[in-house]
Computed example of a mutant assay.
Amino acid sequence: MADQLTTLSRGIDASAVIHPTAIVADGATIGAGCRIGPYCTVSAEAVLEEGVTLVSHVVIDGDVRLGAGVQAMSFATIGLPPQDLKYKGEPTRVEIGARTIIREHATIHRGSVGGHGLTQVGADCLIMCTAHIGHDCVLDHHVILANNVMLGGHVQIGDTVFVGGGAAIHQFVRIGRQVVVGGMTGVEADVIPFGAVMGDRARLTGLNLIGLKRRGFPRSQINTLRAVYRALFRAPGVFGERLANVEAQYGADPVVQEILTFVRADSHRGLCKARRGVIEDDEAEAG
């Protein structure tokens, strides 16, 4: 989730730099050291925390809060109404965590009353060119969306997830932390934490081994996760039995328990399954 955001007094800090062609509505809160470039527009409800940069032609619409150090590049739009025919102008919001970078032409829509009324992007994320974040999405910290990624409404994405260029995530899909999604992949079902998915219609191809190693997971933990993956998605028997077997054998491990909790949580979309006939994750470090 986004970092806790500080409380600012309404108004424009004297140290903020605002280009004369920018339009900042009365009532907007502009923090110390903010820079608002040519032809940007900022709504009356907007709050820009310390050091926010809007490069040029950026649109901030409605109730939007940008955390300290957020950068939005040319023609990005944040807070426009959701693409939901049921939306009738109800007050909903967008929050962006500190130091997140939003590149050119990216779009982030505010929440809807049919969801929780909030679209939320965590801290230290990178939203690349022309990516779209639909209404009521929740992204945790250090998420990277590559160029042209499309998130339908109500998508949930955990920490340190990478989504490759052109991927499309169906509405209400959940993606656990530290997942890698291959480019041009259509994700229609939930992806377990630490998984790697790819394909025209996403299937698990193994674990995100490179991500696990980069973030310092010990070899013993990685080996446990490999064994759990094989037990859940490669072993014979019905899935419920395999889940119970993993619980009995590995349930004391908190990382394994994270996967089990994710699998057992309520889901709109079901669980992304492993593709048959591909190289096992312990033979090829995809991701």
Results as ranks from 00 to 15, higher is better:
Asp3Tyr: 05
Gln4Glu: 12
Ile12Arg: 12
Asp13Leu: 04
Ala22Pro: 07
Ala22Leu: 13
Val24Gly: 14
Asp26Asn: 15
Ala28Met: 05
Gly31Asn: 11
Gly33Trp: 04
Cys34Tyr: 10
Arg35Glu: 15
Tyr39Leu: 14
Tyr39Gly: 02
Glu45Lys: 14
Ala46Glu: 05
Glu49Gln: 14
Gly51His: 09
Ser56Met: 05
Asp61Leu: 08
Asp63Ser: 13
Arg65Glu: 01
Gly67His: 03
Gly67Cys: 04
Ala68Cys: 09
Met73Ile: 07
Pro81Ala: 15
Pro82Val: 07
Lys86Gln: 11
Tyr87Trp: 15
Lys88Gln: 14
Gly89Pro: 11
Glu90Ala: 12
Thr92Leu: 12
Thr92Gln: 04
Ala98Glu: 15
Arg99Thr: 04
Thr100Asn: 11
Thr100His: 08
Ile102Phe: 04
Glu104Tyr: 07
Ile108Trp: 08
Arg110Gln: 13
Gly111Thr: 14
Val113Gln: 13
Gly114Met: 07
Gly114Thr: 07
Asp124Glu: 13
Met128Thr: 13
Thr130Gly: 02
Ala131Ile: 07
Gly134Thr: 06
Cys137Thr: 01
Cys137Tyr: 06
Leu139Gln: 03
His142Ile: 00
Asn147His: 08
Asn148Gln: 08
His154Arg: 01
His154Ser: 06
His154Ile: 03
Val155Asp: 06
Ile157Arg: 01
Ile157Cys: 02
Gly164Thr: 10
Gly164Phe: 08
Gly165Pro: 05
Gly166Asp: 07
Val173Ser: 07
Ile175Glu: 01
Arg177Gln: 14
Val181Gly: 02
Gly182Lys: 01
Gly182Leu: 06
Gly183Ser: 08
Met184Cys: 14
Met184Ala: 13
Gly186Gln: 06
Val191Phe: 07
Val191Gln: 06
Pro193Lys: 01
Phe194Tyr: 14
Gly195Leu: 03
Ala196Leu: 07
Asp200His: 06
Arg203Ala: 14
Thr205Gln: 09
Leu207Ala: 05
Ile210Leu: 10
Leu212Lys: 00
Arg215Phe: 09
Phe217Thr: 05
Arg219Val: 11
Arg219Thr: 11
Arg219Leu: 09
Arg226Gln: 12
Tyr229Leu: 00
Arg230Ala: 11
Pro236Arg: 03
Pro236Cys: 06
Gly237His: 02
Arg242Gln: 01
Asn245Phe: 08
Val246Arg: 02
Glu247Ser: 10
Glu247Thr: 13
Gln249Leu: 15
Thr261Pro: 01
Val263Arg: 11
Val263Ser: 10
Asp266Asn: 09
Asp266Met: 05
Gly270Glu: 05
Leu271Cys: 05
Cys272Ile: 01
Lys273Thr: 13
Ala274Ser: 13
Arg276His: 13
Ile279Lys: 03
Asp282Asn: 13
